[in-house]
Simulated assay, not measured.
Amino acid sequence: MSELSETRWIVVANHKGGCGKTTTVVNLAAELARLGLSVLVVDLDPQANASMHIGKLHPSEVEVTCAELLASEVDRLPQALHEDTHIEGVSLIYGSLALGRAEDSLKEHTARPSEELKAKLAPLDGLYDIVLIDCPPSLKLLTSNALSLATHLIIPIESGSQYGLYGVTDLLRHVDKIKRINPKLEFMGALLIKHDERQTVCKLIETAANEQFGKLLPVKIPVSTKVNQAAMGQMSLHSIDKNARVAKEFRKLAEYVIESLGLTAIEGK
């Protein structure tokens, strides 16, 4: 653990699918852990891709996932936490298809449906240096729950797609709305994914993203087949090929995040 006891809660969100949310969460978590931080991944996406990448169990085999945690009237957090994962130093709370039903249940049975996750995860504050939350491609209640407890937000943008910024106005409007109940939420920046400086579309997206968000992270994640290799092998990009450019960029991202949050890395790891 770092000297600071306060946990940083980083949400990775964008209501557009295929923009690299899960890739960012998994590989940023792996690099943060390699730098000596204690890290937890909370998979709030019904697709549970982060869980299938990191976890040693299939989500269908897990008794208490984020869905059961949200829906239960009793504390099931100890059963939801899994420290034994495929990535050393990274703990996991699994996602599952049942999150869709849990979202509906929150609307019907909870007084403050956007703040239930915050209440359920409150006991973890101070136990981890960083908690990374992977959100579904939606601006509905699950993403609102994540943003309501977050201290920081990263928005991945698919730089290599002409539709990478589709719906940005809606996304920013939703974030502003959540800030009314969570004024501490800080935007760390937009993260360009599948970026290729040689491609005109990437240059255009970079310029437009900087104009619309006002802040880009100083790291650009390139296109790489190693991303899919790592996911299929349930490994980090560093484990696949530590010298690959995409692995080095995630290392730089982790170093930037640590510096920005005032945390301390363990040198030489």
Results as ranks from 00 to 15, higher is better:
A67I: 10
S72P: 01
S72G: 03
E73W: 12
E73H: 09
R76G: 00
Q79G: 00
A80M: 07
A80E: 09
L81N: 05
L81A: 07
H82R: 14
E83T: 15
T85N: 10
E88P: 00
E88M: 09
S91N: 05
S91E: 13
G95I: 08
A98K: 00
G100K: 03
G100F: 03
G100M: 07
R101G: 09
A102F: 12
D104C: 00
S105T: 09
S105L: 11
L106A: 07
E108L: 15
H109F: 15
T110W: 09
R112P: 00
E115V: 09
E115F: 12
E116L: 04
K118Y: 14
A119S: 13
L121E: 05
L121N: 07
A122L: 10
P123C: 09
P123H: 12
P123D: 03
L124T: 08
G126H: 01
Y128Q: 04
Y128D: 02
D129Q: 00
D129R: 05
I130A: 03
V131T: 06
D134V: 07
D134M: 08
C135F: 13
L142T: 06
T143Q: 08
N145H: 14
A146C: 11
S148G: 06
L149M: 15
A150C: 07
L153A: 02
I155F: 01
S159T: 14
S159H: 09
